[in-house]
Each structure stands twice: as C-alpha cells, then as structure tokens.
C-alpha cells in the first residue's frame, strides 16, 4: 500500500480552480518530486496535504488514514511534517528551542510539572535536549544551538526548518523549495542531507523544487503540475524529455 494516496484532489478559490483532479501515489521510503512553472499550484497542494486548506474534492490518505477535514496540528500528529517556501521559523526562539518545540508531542509532561518543576521536568527536558541535539547534528547546526533562529544565515535557516519538521517524527516530510537561495555547493550538500535523512529516519519525502539538478539528482519519481492539473508523472529522465513538459516550461 502506498504511504500517500491522493485521489481526484481539487480546490477552487472563488471561481478559480487552483488544483484540479490531481492523483498522487507515493510509496513508503520514496523520494518524490513535485515540479511545475510558477503558479501551477504546487504550494497549494502542500497546503491541502497539511490541512491549511480544505479540499473541495478528493481524498487524501496517509498510511491508510483519511486526513481530509483534519486540522494542521492533527495532520502533523498523523505523521505529516512540512517546511515553508517563505521560511517560517520561530525567530525569537533559539535554534534548540525551535526543535524542542517540535518535540512537543514526543516528550510530554503535565502543566503541573511545568509550574513546579518536579523531577519529571528535569528528566524530560534532558531527554528533549538529547533528541534535539541529535537532529541538529544531522544538519550541522549543533554548533549554533543557542543562537536565535533569526540570527542564522539563510541556508542554515532552511536547514533548521527541515530539522524542526523532522523532530515531529513524521512518516511523510514535505519540503517546499528546500534549496531556494542556496549556492551550488550548499545545494549539493543539502541533497546529501536529504538522502541521509530519508535513510536514517526511514521516512518518505515529497519535495517542490525549481533546481532541476537537485530534482533529477535525488528524486525517484516526479509529478509535473501545470495550471493546477497533472501534466506528466514518471521517472525524472522520462518526464523531463516529455515534449509537453518542455512546452510548459519554455513556452511555445
């Protein structure tokens, strides 16, 4: 069974059909790419998958569970985590606290414990610190754990967002243009990290990206979106040689 099963997904804003009849099947452990020209509806699909928008039509199943109609936080607890195209970090919190906030539902203690710091508080916080540092290390952010998130350089902010998503212990991780604004070296490094994360944490990744090098480099399968509808699906080399896709990107 596929980890993510999307059928006939669609949404309209007013009269505008932003996403129309999109089908998507992602197998467990797959690295899947979602590409398309600007305004094709890629981020809208992410917003539908994470409950920010409610679809007008269609079903979304994550690991067999129907998530349509659930709130973003419930969907996250169902195993879907994401990053944002325009970075949305907790800017005035430290790098470490950004990740610890995402561990909220992994390590729990009561409000009473928070108020009075019973021994449970110290144990749980220690556990959280260890987990968070472990994740930060994967992204080479452990040296900046006590920086304010807003003081990180741009590339590192993107990485921190992925780290934060990963901390929610997802089955499916959605990355919205993870390499945007990175130089070729940083992108290459990021590709390695994404692959490593997939293998180490045994998760499935769906990513939106304009950098074709990254897409062809790591994605096993691609869906091309144009004007909210599917244009092509398949292996990267096949899809990118598809004349319709080339037309959509380069114009007639």
């Amino acid at each position: 069974m596929a980890l993510l099963e999307v059928k006939n997904l669609g949404i309209s804003f007013g009269g505008l059909r932003a996403v129309d009849d999109v089908n998507l099947n992602i197998e467990k452990g797959q690295l899947y790419g979602l590409i398309g020209p600007n305004g094709a509806g890629k981020t809208t699909i992410f917003n539908l998958l994470t409950g920010v928008y409610r679809p007008t039509t269609g079903t979304i199943k994550v690991d067999g569970v129907d998530i349509v109609g659930k709130s973003p936080s419930e969907i996250c607890q169902n195993g879907v985590a994401r990053t944002f195209q325009n970075i949305r970090l907790f800017k005035k919190m430290t790098v470490l606290d950004n990740v610890k906030a995402a561990l909220h539902n992994q390590v729990k203690y009561s409000l009473f414990t928070s108020f009075f710091r019973t021994s449970n508080y110290y144990q749980s916080e220690k556990q959280m610190n260890e987990k968070a540092m472990e994740i930060l290390k994967v992204f080479d952010l452990d040296g900046q754990a006590n920086y304010l998130a807003s003081n990180l350089p741009y590339g590192k902010q993107r990485k921190l967002e992925i780290a934060r998503g990963l901390a929610t212990n997802p089955k499916l991780l959605l990355l919205d243009e993870p390499a945007a604004g990175m130089n070729p070296n940083e992108t290459a490094e990021l590709m390695e990290t994404i692959r490593l994360v997939r293998d180490k944490y045994n998760i499935t990744i769906l990513l939106i990206e304009h950098d074709m090098k990254l897409v062809t480099g790591i994605c096993e399968k691609i869906l091309v979106l144009n004007f909210g509808t599917e244009l092509a699906t398949g292996a990267p080399e096949d899809v990118l040689n598809n004349p319709e896709v080339i037309t959509a990107y380069l114009g007639e």
Partner: peptide, 12 residues
C-alpha cells in the same frame, strides 16, 4: 507568538 502557521504545522 512567533509564527502560528508553523506552530500548527508541528502539531501544536
């Protein structure tokens, strides 16, 4: 406070 959209996205 810092970003409620992101806060929701991490399950808060």
């Amino acid at each position: 406070r810092d970003n409620y959209v992101a806060a929701e996205s991490i399950g808060l």
